[in-house]
């Protein structure tokens, strides 16, 4: 490699670092603004929306891009939530001993806990994915549902983690409320960017090829099984991060927070936005958070309407808001109806 191209590379990385600093600053600023102006109810919706975005974009990788339909992702979210809560609780005193009590130890504990949550959820995804991803279509859907339920039943019986009453750490006040705007949206930004990069790469194209025609993909030497397991694992790990964020939003987590309905919520998010579209998943995640919270006033009618909404979407616009397209291409179409698309 010549020194000229090494220089180009350095400039590139410097530019990126500057951009990253800018993004972090913007998220921090928005977070401060929100926390100083908005009422708690709105803050909660905003946090849930961010967590939903992470869930939706992660699920979209396997359900949308790869076309392998999982309806049991609440299980992986649960694994991430429990792992993050448990290891966060155990790591915190140790990190305080190392760094002294304060924001620094808290932030480090939290982010390490999230990474551990992702790791455990990803491992669970790997274990579930290897045997099941040979199955196709609706069978796979039902098996993921089964695994999701098994995971919940295991937590329901795990006495070390509080069994059915749930886990709330060692402190009687419950889990620390680490989750705030800054961390949720920083993680959301990182994960959405990372998953978008993955999707628009050779690997992402191969995943789409598997969705479109698995037999042809095999004939093109694409390692279909390995890629499916990879997508499933990454998707499960992403749900794990969301689980960790979710756990530290409240004082404790219970197995019933991760019931089948939660998996369906995730499916609704990616369906609303359009299966296979990252922009769609982002919009769908926000949509579900806002809809469910706003409809809370309707109390017992809420879930009836929500179910009805899902049915109507499937009957009227099964491809969702965006179809499989991304936002830029949708905007381009809106501007000039006959312009050519490019990737």
């Amino acid at each position: 490699m010549s020194s000229a191209s090494a220089q180009v590379s350095t400039v590139r990385w410097l530019k990126r670092a500057a951009f990253a600093v800018l993004v972090v600053a913007v998220i921090y600023g928005l977070g401060a603004l929100l926390e100083s102006t908005a009422i708690e109810y709105v803050q909660r919706i905003v946090l849930l929306a961010g967590i939903n975005v992470i869930l939706a974009v992660g699920l979209n990788l396997i359900n949308g891009t790869t076309g392998q339909f999982s309806i049991g992702h609440a299980g992986f979210m649960a694994v991430g939530a429990y792992a993050a809560a448990f290891f966060g609780t155990k790591l915190h005193p140790w990190l305080i001993g190392l760094l002294g009590a304060g924001a620094c130890a808290d932030a480090l504990t939290f982010n390490l806990a999230l990474c551990i949550g992702a790791l455990f959820a990803g491992a669970a995804g790997l274990v579930v994915g290897i045997p099941t991803l040979r199955l196709r279509g609706d069978y796979l859907a039902v098996v993921t549902l089964g695994f999701g339920e098994i995971i919940r039943i295991v937590f329901n019986n795990a006495r070390a983690l509080g069994a059915a009453t749930g886990y709330s750490g060692d402190d009687p006040a419950g889990l620390p409320a680490y989750t705030n705007f800054f961390w949720v949206y920083l993680w959301a930004t990182l994960l959405v960017t990372g998953l978008a990069h993955l999707t628009f790469s050779q690997t992402g194209r191969s995943l789409t090829a598997i969705r479109e025609d698995e037999i042809a993909a095999e004939a093109m030497a694409i390692p279909t099984t390995r890629l499916k397991v990879l997508a499933f694992t990454v998707s499960a790990a992403t749900a794990g991060v969301a689980g960790g964020l979710f756990a530290h939003m409240q004082s404790g987590i219970r197995p019933e927070d991760f019931k089948f309905e939660k998996s369906i919520d995730m499916v609704v998010m990616i369906i609303v936005g359009g299966l296979g579209s990252i922009s769609g998943a982002v919009v769908g995640g926000i949509f579900v958070a806002v809809t469910l919270e706003v409809m809370r006033d309707l109390s017992q009618y809420r879930l009836v309407l929500y179910a009805l909404l899902l049915i109507i979407i499937m009957l009227v616009r099964p491809q969702g808001l965006f179809g499989a397209r991304e936002l830029p291409s949708v905007l381009r179409r809106l501007r000039g109806p006959r312009t050519k698309e490019s990737s």
Binding site: E261, Q300, L310, I311
Partner: peptide, 13 residues
């Protein structure tokens, strides 16, 4: 499949 899940949720609620 998703429609069926929707109908199921609807009837439960």
């Amino acid at each position: 499949l998703i429609t069926a899940i929707g109908v199921s949720l609807f009837l439960q609620n």
